[in-house]
Design a binder for these strands. Structure first.
Lengths: 341, 341
DNA sequence: TTGAAAGCGGTACCAC
DNA sequence: GTGGTACCGCTTTCAA
């Protein structure tokens, strides 16, 4: 490492006052120049002097101070439980992040707080975000919404399976996913259908609605039955589970997502069952893994509302925080038929 | 939705002054009570009155104001290029987030700004984070570090393939990954080795070091050669790529990660080649898909330094910002031998 | 045991 | 054209 860069150990950073002094003007003028406020009310000569001084000193405005004065932080808080591990979420978050950033907001991701409801909401509220978008996070309940409103946060949006009283809602109808899968299984002649729910409890928020959609769909057909089965992404456990399937002679399977479906398919094959001949399998989320396995997985894909649109919606609501709560659907589902069912 | 909660459209939120008024004390006293400052210097009666007033009003402290006054924001800024860098990253981020949160920090994830170097750093600096942790983000260069230091941010850490002058470094030695893979391929008798680099340029920061490690390892063995091959996660492209492998008669393959390896294995099999007999394949990152594919993938797994340790390190550095820059390794690599090589 | 008041760094109104 | 100054909400000395 040749370069040294003097290891400047961060003295007191320059403030707008330092810039003012260096340029021989007032703090007010510095503010005007640096923010391009007041069209031509500052002479070009002064402007140049101010800008030069700022550059010299390495001045960077203090967003915290600005936020305090402005009464708005420019922060959009995204709350999410542990589900953040999923590939879909990561992708969505990245896009939302970037869309918000283009609109001048800072996206802050707030993971599990170890609290729920009002208690969690107090944590969020301390940051005084301009909006809270709660993604599949069941710690946002009615009390939480109330705390946020009372803390002056006008825009609260829940994105999840069900709306929350007092908040705008992006309804992600996970129920549809399960329904669509089971309808297809029934359509291809399957009657004894297993539904795989992840053992990982942090995924229950998604999993249970998918299950209940599956159950509802089955009820529509007299001879179809659905049985709930837990599975973890562990091959040992999967082998054991496969025995169960052999015993119960299930002929159809809907798995929580393509990862679980893949593990399941492997285990079934290892147990001597053929997919789809003996057991037809439908996954969900259209993940890469489903296209690589043989047979290729039939899956229910979800198309989320583009992050850009959601960012725009947040921006709009922040501009008009008294808009009555609205609810809209947040994803569309579609069946992708491949080889496994 | 029965309950109404008055849809309170966020009037002016209560401040500590409101609480003071309601409790019949001064703002100072409110602050003391709510922060448990000054051991027993406030009477129990007063404390109770203050707490009750705060509860009544739904008071939530204003973190922005607090940060301004305190001179530290409690924010740890994580910068990352494309967050999409894979499932490993998402997992790591979630853990770090939670570890920091336990230490009282707020983790803010800042995606690509559309700027690099000093310009990007100015964006980050505006938030006055207590620390900046730059994850595999090549927009952090020497100038950026300088901007951050001048803005009073004492703790700047780069986590990536190479250290950056002036910043602490968590060195993730991706080079080792490639080296380890190729050494194994050579050890099992392969000489003509293809290395798959993702076509997705956002992954280059990881991919190139892995490739160069592969090249170095090959040079250590006189008869071994390495040839770089681009591939995207698209089956059409993969089929075409497989033709190339058939022609060139490569007998070993190291793919960027297990996803790429899986796509590659599929394409090879579809082209009539046997794995590992004709072509031995090594992947990386030990992803789920590698265990589900047949043959099971041999892979190079990476064990990152636990997020908890990194959070602790950041906390320590924030407490002593003048610590001379230190560098430490950030991951350990290990070969997981399965069936594909 | 409690309160008055001086800031933290910016912004924007109003005066000159 | 430019500058003085009163805030934003909170913490923390110092004095009472």
């Amino acid at each position: 490492m040749a370069s040294m860069s003097a290891q400047s150990p961060a003295g007191t950073p320059p403030t707008s006052e330092d810039v003012a002094r260096a340029a021989g003007v007032s703090r007010a003028t510095v503010s005007y120049v640096l923010n391009n406020t007041r069209g031509g009310r500052v002479s070009e000569a002064t402007r140049e002097r101010v800008r030069e001084a700022a550059r010299q000193l390495g001045y960077v405005p203090h967003a915290v101070a600005r936020a305090l004065r402005a009464g708005r932080s420019g922060v959009v808080l995204l709350t999410a439980p542990a589900v953040t591990a999923g590939p879909l979420f990561a992708q969505f978050f990245a896009e939302l992040q970037s869309a918000l950033s283009e609109l001048g907001y800072t996206a802050v991701l707030y993971g599990p707080t170890g609290h729920r409801g009002a208690e969690a909401a107090r944590r969020w509220a301390e940051l005084r975000p301009d909006a809270v978008l709660s993604l599949m996070d069941d710690s946002l309940d009615e009390h939480a919404v109330d705390v946020l409103h009372r803390a002056g946060i006008g825009v609260v949006v829940s994105a999840g399976p069900a709306p929350v009283a007092g908040a705008h809602a992006l309804v992600a109808d996970q129920v549809q996913v399960g329904a669509m899968a089971v309808e297809h299984l029934v359509a291809v002649g399957r009657r004894k259908i297993g539904v795989i729910v992840p053992a990982d409890v942090s995924l229950r928020g998604f999993a249970e609605p998918r299950l209940s959609g599956a159950e509802t769909a089955a009820r529509a057909h007299p001879s179809a039955t659905v049985v709930r089965q837990e599975l973890s992404l562990d091959e040992g456990a999967a082998a054991q589970w496969a025995e169960l399937v052999v015993e119960t002679r299930a002929d159809g399977l809907f798995a929580y997502n393509d990862e679980y479906a893949s593990v399941a398919v492997r285990a079934l094959q290892d147990a001597g069952l053929r997919v789809p001949e003996d057991v037809a399998v439908v996954g969900a989320d259209d993940l890469l893994i489903g296209r690589l396995l043989r047979p290729k997985l039939t899956t229910v894909r979800m198309d989320f509302t583009p992050a850009r649109e959601i960012a725009a919606m947040l921006d709009r609501l922040i501009g008009a925080p008294d808009t009555p709560t609205e609810a809209r659907s947040y994803l569309r589902t579609g069946l992708v038929i491949r080889e496994s069912a």
